[in-house]
Amino acid sequence: MTRRLLAAPLLALAALAQAAPITLKDDRGATVTLPGVPQRIVSLLPSLTETVCELGDCAKLVGVDRFSNFPERAQKLPKLGGLEDTAVEALAALKPDVVLLGVSARIVDRLESLGIKVIALEPKRMTDVQRVIGTVGQVLERPDEARRLWNRIDGHIAQSAATLPAAARGLTVYYEVDSAPYAAGAASFMGEILTRLGARNIVPPELGPFPKLNPEFIVRADPQVIMVGQRSAPGLPQRPGWAGLQAVKNQRLCVWVPAESDVLVRPGPRMSEAAALMARCLRQAAAGPVPLPTAAFTAPPGGMR
């Protein structure tokens, strides 16, 4: 009886804490107030899906975008489309307490007109990733876990950099994120990881995080290493002028299989794995020709992004 009497006030306090409003500013600059810790969450960005799960609240996700395929639990959730074709009616039917999405998503106004709480986040640089993880931690009331997650990511990137031999440092790198060609510039989170690993990005910060390049720019830059996804790699040496690039002549092409590409392009909890993959590439390139993937291209469940 005494234990019950003592437990009752504690449970009441816990309920009050859970119901306390959460007010924050998202990356639009909009102030969003949630009535309490959300119990039903929709995530429309793979990196945000992974962040929610890494912070320990995967069970609160009730729907995700079609590209969210990690962790495995996310593959079993209702898929609600992508940036251009989100199934708004299906999303609303899930009755989410909050929707996490990218700033560029076109459905923000529509969702808000339906009375659905929206938090828009845009991680492009590493400082953005740190802030976004902190914001998601604030939404979930897991600020300590968010700080630990960021410290772990940052520490693992430093460890990857420390493992590289001197010969792997200072190599010039072109990282192609799309065959248009779009590149990961020095101002992107991917470019910042490369810089921390001692590589020299051929795309300067002033061109922006993910600029579309004139192919002649790449030919003139003549990178020593090229990083590219398996989908875009076929025919790359046949592009005009590319056969003479150092990276092509010396077979220093790091071709990512789809599962690796997913890790590399998502600004979230797996950035430490991304750093390890880039470090492996630089280490192999410094030693000689880089082995190409032996597995055929197979897109992961949900597609690629």
Rank of each mutant, 00 (worst) to 15 (best):
L264N: 05
P21H: 07
L5K: 11
F189N: 00
V248W: 01
S232A: 15
P46R: 05
G208D: 06
D57Q: 12
S272T: 01
L100H: 03
K249L: 07
A30P: 04
R169G: 03
V88M: 07
R270W: 02
V64Q: 02
R169S: 04
G63D: 01
A247V: 05
L94P: 07
T33W: 11
P46C: 06
L171W: 04
L236A: 14
A285H: 02
A19S: 12
L111Y: 03
I107A: 05
Q284G: 03
A279M: 01
L55M: 05
I133R: 01
E54Y: 04
D97L: 14
Q230K: 08
T294G: 15
P46S: 05
A243L: 08
T135S: 10
R270G: 00
V139T: 02
F297T: 01
K79Y: 11
Q75G: 15
S179H: 12
K124H: 11
V173H: 03
G244H: 11
E84H: 14
G134R: 11
L171S: 01
T49S: 15
F210R: 12
C58M: 06
L194N: 02
G102E: 14
A8F: 11
I119C: 06
V32K: 07
L245M: 07
A199W: 03
T86V: 13
K76L: 15
T135L: 10
L236P: 02
G208K: 08
A296H: 06
V219T: 14
P240K: 14
A92Q: 06
A276M: 06
P293N: 06
I22F: 03
A285E: 01
D178R: 15
L282D: 00
G134C: 09
D222L: 08
V255S: 03
R305F: 09
E89V: 09
D178M: 15
A199Q: 03
L77A: 13
G241I: 13
R270P: 00
P123R: 13
A180P: 01
A276S: 11
V132H: 05
C254V: 12
L121E: 01
G268S: 03
V42R: 00
L111V: 09
S179D: 08
P165V: 06
H156M: 14
A276H: 04
N69A: 12
V255K: 02
A275W: 00
M1F: 11
T127Q: 10
L48A: 10
S272N: 11
T51N: 04
L282P: 15
A8I: 10
R28P: 01
G268V: 00
D57S: 08
R110C: 04
A295E: 15
T172M: 04
L207Y: 10
A90P: 03
Q159F: 07
E84T: 13
G63S: 05
M278D: 00
L245E: 01
M227D: 00
L83D: 09
P234I: 10
L48Y: 08
A93R: 13
L264G: 03
E145G: 11
P78N: 07
M227A: 07
L34E: 02
L114Q: 09
V139Q: 00
G155M: 15
D178L: 15
A279R: 00
A199K: 02
L61N: 04
